[in-house]
């Protein structure tokens, strides 16, 4: 049933997905077919997706967090997915966007890590090098019009220097003391900036964790593609630590009065 009265009486347009059911691929495709462009069609959208990753600098290093959900469209499809990935002894990357592309990136980085290990010459790749490598990969792929559909955060500490930077499916890079991808770039980023900017060198691990936890909570309240189960990575001079999954305590009683959410009284 089409609930939009303006559409009533008009020819049905199955090419428009009025209910946002994508990416379920069985949906009939009745739109115009261009055999030529179809012949060179590449990835047009992510399929199984992860949502925000957030990260901040603090006194001892970098703290990064991402929840454990991989969504299939609006369906909360996989609820035990780790989206934080350690590389070597000094670096963690966090990924939002297409999870299979992220898995491919993990195999790339694993291969790179082994190559570096087998050299056994005292040299190793730090977060800055990993980030440069990823940005080259992402930009090369987008230039082939076949992007890896992710936005990635790269964080780490090497030789006493903290590093935190972003790279996405376009090959765009930037660096800041607080970063967030996806929905978090809208919702969490302002919170993180307020809490962190100017305090990068004084925030303790406990304080940083508070800030991260708070942002994850806000994201869970506001982001319909998020989950109240998440992991936190800390990278310090002592190495990488990725926590077990943590649960967020949230209260939804306020929502009772919201029309469209709770039981309707009128």
């Amino acid at each position: 049933m089409d609930h939009f009265p303006t559409n009533w009486g008009r020819p049905r347009n199955d090419a428009f997905d009025a209910y946002g059911t994508y990416p379920i691929h069985q949906r009939p495709q009745n739109g115009p077919k261009d055999a030529f462009s179809a012949g060179v069609q590449r990835t047009q959208q992510p399929i199984v997706t992860g949502t925000s990753v957030i990260a901040i600098k603090y006194k001892d290093g970098i703290m990064m967090a991402a929840d454990n959900l991989a969504s299939y469209g609006s369906l909360a499809r996989f609820k035990d997915v780790q989206r934080l990935h350690p590389v070597g002894d000094n670096t963690v990357i966090g990924a939002g966007g297409d999870m299979s592309d992220f898995q491919y990136i993990q195999t790339l980085l694993n291969e790179l890590d082994i190559e570096e290990y087998t050299a056994q010459d005292g040299h190793s790749l730090g977060p800055a090098e990993i980030h440069e490598y990823l940005s080259q990969v992402m930009y090369a792929r987008r230039s082939k019009i076949n992007p890896l559909w992710n936005s990635l955060l790269v964080g780490g500490v090497k030789n006493g220097t903290r590093f935190l930077a972003y790279v996405d499916l376009l090959g765009t890079t930037y660096s800041a003391s607080t970063l967030a991808t996806g929905y978090g770039a809208h919702i969490a980023q302002p919170l993180l900036r307020t809490a962190v900017e100017g305090f990068e060198d004084v925030l303790t691990e406990e304080q940083a964790l508070k800030i991260i936890e708070n942002s994850m909570k806000v994201l869970f309240y506001r982001d319909a593609r998020s989950l109240n189960k998440y992991q936190v990575a800390t990278i310090t001079k002592d190495g990488v630590n990725i926590s077990e999954s943590k649960h967020l305590e949230t209260s939804w009683s306020f929502a009772e009065g919201i029309r469209g959410y709770g039981a309707q009284t009128q």
């Binding site: 050299a119 010459d121 040299h123 790749l125 800055a128 090098e129 440069e132 490598y133 080259q136």
Partner: peptide, 12 residues
């Protein structure tokens, strides 16, 4: 330099 933005280790 291009791939890793790192001066190549001399031994390599």
């Amino acid at each position: 330099k291009m791939i890793f933005n790192r001066p190549i280790p001399v031994n390599r």
